[in-house]
């Protein structure tokens, strides 16, 4: 697991005196601060360090603490040298919610860490415990920091997944990696699980076909993407996207809310009374929202808009428990909106 990549840039704490490393560069030190919001990478990083230490000495003593329920002198108890001097590995979670007593004891510990103990502090972001973080970042020679920032952009995730295959010594085509990332864009852990599964189930190069065979038809679609497709009149694509969104676990209630929000903006902007120049102020919308709504409004008429708003309210009632099948109601709403309300008005 030594794939080199610069995905995890160090954005935080520019004036830290200690080394700041990417998640896969973790190495033993008396105190290791694992910061950042990406819990999956942090877990993986901590596991790497633990496995490394255990390989060095199988008698490694493992202990896990949580900082929010910490009671006095727990840290000293587990980190102090034992009779036979086994190495100790202490993992402390939830430092971002730490108790006051933990804060004081951890800072004391930092000044004088015992020999043979590795203390890993997991801090998932936030201001709580800033005093401790500053103290660690100043503790040159004792501490290191591993920064696990979230992979936000698709390109970062593609790099990550490509490295995942490369580390395992498998070759994956770029288009295959891209398809995989678009299917699992939500959770990094799921993406990794999918990579692992693919590598375990197949032999040879991983191509887009392989990905399609295992994860074809799956894509994580947001509610707004479905709404955009439907409003643009692309009924077929919108229905497919709706299905994909439902299958990958999108809740129907926010889905309807997304439709309602888009249609509301469009309805406001459809006004003939308010001159275009005053719309932004009259409706409390940003200029780009107005431009966007104007573009969306092409092909719509007032009757269609009205009928669709009524249908959205019906659908909202059904997904919130009124009699009716929520999935059918959603599909009916999507097709009616994709027809710009014409299927409703004709009746």
């Amino acid at each position: 697991m030594a794939a080199a990549r610069g995905a995890t840039a160090t954005k935080t704490a520019s004036k830290a005196a200690i080394p700041q490393l990417a998640w896969n560069q973790i190495r033993p030190a008396s105190v290791v601060l694992v910061s950042g919001t990406e819990g999956f990478l942090a877990d993986r990083s901590i596991r790497m360090l633990r496995d490394l230490l255990r390989a060095e000495d199988p008698s490694l003593e493992l202990s896990e603490l949580t900082a929010d329920t910490y009671v006095a002198s727990e840290l000293a108890t587990v980190a102090s040298p034992s009779l036979f001097g086994e190495p100790r590995f202490v993992r402390i979670d939830a430092v971002e919610k730490c108790s006051d007593i933990f804060l004081t004891e951890a800072i004391d510990y930092l000044a004088n860490p015992p020999e043979g103990a590795t203390v890993v502090l997991r801090h998932a972001g936030g201001v709580r415990g800033k005093r401790l973080l500053d103290a660690i970042r100043a503790a040159k020679g004792t501490a290191i920091e591993v920064v696990c920032t979230e992979l936000k952009k698709d390109s970062e995730k593609i790099d990550f997944a490509a490295a995942e295959f490369a580390t395992a010594g498998r070759r994956a085509r770029p288009d295959a990696v891209r398809a995989l990332v678009s299917a699992f864009s939500g959770d990094l852990a799921e993406l990794v699980a999918a990579c692992t599964q693919l590598m375990a189930d197949t032999t040879g190069d991983i191509t887009e076909q392989t990905v399609a065979q295992y994860y074809g038809g799956r894509a994580e679609v947001t509610a707004f993407a479905v709404a955009d497709l439907a409003i643009a009149g692309r009924a077929g694509e919108a229905l497919i996207a709706l299905r994909q969104a439902i299958n990958s676990g999108t809740d129907p209630v926010p889905m309807v809310a997304a439709f309602a929000m888009k249609m509301r903006t469009m309805a406001k902007v459809s006004s003939n009374r308010v001159p275009a120049a005053q719309m932004a102020r009259a409706f409390g919308l940003a200029p780009w929202q107005i431009d966007r709504a104007k573009r969306d409004l092409r092909g719509w008429n007032d009757a269609g808009l009205g009928a669709c708003i009524r249908l959205i309210a019906d659908t909202d009632a059904i997904v919130k428990g009124a009699p009716g099948d929520p999935q059918f109601a959603l599909e009916r709403m999507v097709s009616a909106i994709a027809s710009r309300g014409r299927t409703l008005v004709r009746r």
């Binding site: 809310a257 309805a267 009524r310 309210a313 009632a317 919130k320 428990g321």
Partner: peptide, 12 residues
């Protein structure tokens, strides 16, 4: 009364 967003119900 059944927890539908008031704005949406009023719009409809």
């Amino acid at each position: 009364g059944a927890n539908i967003t008031p704005t949406l119900a009023l719009e409809a």
